[in-house]
Every structure is written in C-alpha cells, then in structure tokens.
Design a protein around this nucleic acid. Sequence first.
RNA 1: GCGCCCGUAGCUCAGCUGGAUAGAGUACUUGGCUACGAACCAAGGGGUCAGGAGUUCGAAUCUCUUCGGGCGCACCA
Length: 561
Amino acid sequence: MRSMSAAINFKSHLSELFAQALREVAPDQPDTSILIERPKQVAHGDYSCNLAMQLAKPLRKAPRDIANALIAALPKSAVVEKVEIAGAGFINVFITTVAKQQVVHGVLQAGAGYGHVHAGGGRKVGVEFVSANPTGPLHVGHGRGAAVGDCLCNVLHAAGWNVTREFYYNDAGAQIDNLTLSVQLRCKGVTPDDPSWPESGYRGDYITEVARGYIAKETVIADDQQVKACGDVNDAEAIRHFAVAYLRREQDLDLRAFQVEFDVFSLESALYTDGKVEETVKKLIASGHTYEQDNALWLRTTDFGDDKDRVMRKSDGGYTYFVPDVAYHLDKWRRGFVRVINEQGSDHHSTITRVRAGLQALNEGIPKGWPDYVLHQMVTVLKNGEEVKISKRAGSYVTLRDLIDEVGCDATRYFLAARHPDSQLVFDIDLAKSQSNDNPVYYIQYAHARVSTVLLQWGGDSAVLQHADVGVLDNEYETQLLQRMIDFPQVVEMAAEELAPHLIAFYLKELAADFHSYYNAVRILVDDEKLKLARLALIAAVAQVLKNGLALLGVSAPEKM
RNA sequence: GCGCCCGUAGCUCAGCUGGAUAGAGUACUUGGCUACGAACCAAGGGGUCAGGAGUUCGAAUCUCUUCGGGCGCACCA
C-alpha cells in the first residue's frame, strides 16, 4: 500500500526526475529549488516545472534552450506520457492515463487512510484552542476557534503528527471574582438593572440559572470533578467553586454538541498549587531579566523584542496573567511537544511576543519562534440584517449552541472552518437558516449521498470493486476525477504545513463539482459489465475521498439526505 | 500615534509561498428530469486584484507609500 501511494505521488516523483536532470544540465546550480505545480489549464499538462526559467539568468542562456537540455537529461519514467515546452519556457509533463487509473485501487485499498501522509513523522504537537474562561457559555467566536482548531488537529493527525488537543482555562483572577460576585448578587435577589449592580458584573440570564442551581444545592460534574453547592449565599468561595464548575459543564455540553473533544484540560489554578508559577518566577529572577520598580516586579521583555517591559508581580502582590501563561508553556515544553500551536482570536495577539519573550528569558533552550500561533479574525453576527454585538457583560449574546440548533452542526462547522482564519467572517444567521440548501456543505454531502444511492441500486458486493479493471476509465470526466483524487494527499500535506484547514473545504467543493458534472454527463450503471464495474469503482473511490475529507472537517458524510 | 491582520466580480470567498488568458459560489439571463437523487448539470454577461511607485523574464502574490476596515497597545484575561 505504501509503495502504491508513493508511486501515485507524481509530484515528488517528477521532482526527483528534475533534480537528476538539474545535476546534469547545471551542476553548478545545485541549490535551485525544484517547483512542480499543477497548471490551471489541461492543455498545459498535468504537472509543470519552471526550472528552465529559473536557470536562465545564472546560466545566461535562453530558457527554451535550457528546457530542451533538461528534457534530454530527464530520466525515463513509465508514468510520463510526454513532455512539452510551452510559453516562456515552462516544461509541461503529461502523465499516462494508465498510471492515473491506479489511484482508484489506491483509494479503495487505503480506505479511511487515504490522504494520510507521514510529513509529521509521529512527532508530538500540542494544539491549544477554544480556551474560553468559565464565565459564560461559548459564543460564535469560540465556535470559530473550535472549528478551526479541531479541523487543524485532524489535518495534522492525517499528516502524521501525534496530536494532543488541549483546553486551558482561567479559574482564578479578576474575571472569576466578577463572576462570583455576579452570582452572589443574583442569589440575593439583586438584578442587573438595580443601581447597586457593579459596572464589571455579568448581566446575562445564565447567571440567574447558576444562582438558582446554587441555591437549590445542585451537584455538577465537570472535568472529572464533582461539585455540590452548599447553598450558603455568604460563602463566596463555595459560590466561585460552583459557578466555575457549572459553566465548565455548560461549555462541555456546547463542545459536545459541536463534536469537539479535548484530550487535556489545564487549569490556571493548578499552576499555582503545583508550584509551577513560583518556579517560573524564580527562574526568571535568576535569569537577570527582572527588576523592581514602583513596588512591582517587572520582566525586561524588551530584551526579547517586546515594545515595553511587562509587570510580573503587581504591587498588591498578585501575579499578572502572563506569569502563569509562561509557566504553562514551560510545562508544555517539558511535556515533550516539539511543536505547540495556539489557536486564538486575534484580539489576543499581543500575548504572542510576551509569552515568547518570557520563554526565552527562562534560558531553557526553547526555540525562538516557539510556540506557533494561528489567530482567527473576529466573527460578526448578523441577525435580522443587524449586527449583534457580542458582550458577556451586557448579556447580548449569540451562543454557539443557539447557532448549532438553528443552523445545524455540520453547516456551522463548515461555515466557520471553510474560510482562511485571517479573514473576517460575517455569519448571517438568517441567510444560513433560510438558504441552508445553498450552503456548500450540502453540495459536498449530496455528492456522497448520490454515490451511495448508485451503489445501492447496483446492489453488488463493493468488495469486488477493488479488483475492477479500471483500464477503461479514460473519458475527460474520468481523468479529471482521477487527477483530483491524486491531489488529495498533497492538499492534506499543504493544509498541515500552512496550518490552513480551509484548504480541505475548497478541495472538497472541487471534487464534488467534478463528480456532479460526471454524474450528469455519464451513466454509471451501463449494460457493459466491465465498464460498469470500473465506473462503480471510480465513484466508490470518490465517495471515500469525500468521506475522508469531510471527516477532517468534522462533518458527516450521509448516505442519504 | 505605534504594532498585527485584511482590502480580488453586485454579494460571500479561493488563488497552491513569483508563473501561462485572475477563478468558484451566489445573484441575473437561457437551456436540461419517459436512464443511476434537479439539494444537480450546461451556457452567457459581469474585474483599474483599493490607489500609486519599485524589485524582474513575469506581481493579486515580495518591498515602500497613500487611502479604507478590523483588532490590539493595563500593575484585566
């Protein structure tokens, strides 16, 4: 199977051939990068190489002459049909249909494993995402983080990385104090419209429910902890404990409804109780990068590229949030993550320099650009044509669960993950609801369901399709589908490399489009038995790739809709 | 004011780390179900890639700059 899929990787195969030709034609230019790309137009072949144009300057020769020399020096390959020179000096390579047809067997044999590559080499990568503080239900922004982060994890796993999904939350500090106070006031019957309600208090209705649960002495289970409310309105510590557990449980339910699961939950409070914060502070002081000023302890983060120094210990004796943050990342490093990716909203981007600076100051041999970050831009929510401002404190809110209930899990996930994280996203709830049939996710799922129906009508044993003679698959629709499936592993590899899960969504849309065109133009269940089996094998392979790709997005692949 | 991200068809968005005539979806105009699902397909019009300058065989992509939008700039997280 491995040798099969390696043989189907025409891109790397051609890359090797051109590398050999390069050594012969231009031995003095060994560092020239060999780029093999897929031309947009079929007339330009299946793959093209711009090596000749790159060499034109150093060799001081015409690109077309170099191209001729390269082609002459190109080792023979059974999969290459012909090689042409075009345009300014492109070398266009055409692959034999026979070689492309092998992808059908490759897909059917590999099954759910088709699209997996070993770029990651089994190395450990930790991906932290969502990481919402337990001060309210998850909103659309968290949803984007969840969709992008989870999809990224799936993609990295498929690319051969050993992935750990991690959720970090702050269960101490000022925001939690606000939460505790808000719940306590609600317990005492004070409402947000009361003049005594604090400015920084949380006003959402969910606070009332937490208070009700506390008074009713409910028991909640969250993160393997069981917390029973004592009901004492004056016991702030008990309220805090209960409120955090209650909201964590709510978030867990949101995440479950969104089909997202985490391997590890990390608590900020644990970093204190385990002594990791103290240890980090000591190490930073020992490093010589700290100083006392205005009754506070500062870290000279400007030594590491920050634009100003940062306070570590406030004059009231407490640490700023960034100290446990550094301690947390030191802990990640020690847990053996050669790579860590933090998926966050771009409103937190200022922490990047700070955390990296803190880690550099520790002098623990942590690489300079560690950890990596994927920042998604803000989500704007439109409802009734108007923007809904998301504010926990004001209580105006579009929760992730509302969205899932109204739009559906599959469509919500697709919508939030199918765009480049860098671009701002407008989530029009009415549009997503009323025109849900126009959502591309249904287009892709429909292709999958159509294949299922055809296979059902055929009624044969799909195991025999693995041995179908695919040599008859040679019309333009079929070769297009073959090539598209051949591309899939490289799309996965690219998505993992670029940390760009949206590439999967766009690939699937194209594969589905190729299939729908084929389906409309060519009949699958023809009388010719050999041709029928070949076509069935082809569409079964297409369905498998669709399913694998949808799985990366965390979207279902229904057999009927 | 400083830093990061963005600006591509009326609208929503791609554009494979510099390649060939800039692409999808949607909307609009047409055509296609007496053969496997019409949640589909086929065809058509629609562009100063925000503006300008530079780098080179070649720029939506890289650099500089102007304009416009978002987000940061705490002894909050």
